[in-house]
Amino acid sequence: MNYTKFKLSRDRHRKLILFDDAYQQKSHQVIAIRAFPISAADKGIALVDHQGNELMWIENLQDLPVEWRELIEEELTSRDFMPEIKKIDSLSSFITPCVWWVETNRGNTCFTLKGEEAIRRLSSLALLITDQYGVHFLIKDRTKLDHYSIKLLDRFL
């Protein structure tokens, strides 16, 4: 895609703005959305306006000009919240609902697991755990956790 026709910048409210040179400098406040946030985070990113209309499709983040990529990545990281669990410290019980105390890459926290179905297998190794409020916790490779965490997790799989 020819990105020179467009201009991407931030406005005073730190919102992302897309200028479209071809259409008389029409500008849109846009939101960047990953189409495949779990299976391929960097492939397929859509810029949509606040009504959800797609304005631009970016096939691959790596193909973008540097300044675009930085802006979009900044935008995405500020919106994406998917802490990665590094260690499970303890559980309140093995029967759901139960509280999990975990160490993540974004600090230590606890969350409530409502049911076993909230643990979703992404692949044979990766797991996605959704807590009571819809926050997603990622386990990239469950075999790489420490022994005790694996034992705790195993009770739910």
Partner: peptide, 15 residues
């Protein structure tokens, strides 16, 4: 279907 899929929490990866 593309646009409403993008509105889903995990886009195409939504369950």
């Amino acid at each position: 279907a593309h646009e409403f899929i993008l509105k889903q929490l995990h886009g195409y990866d939504s369950l």
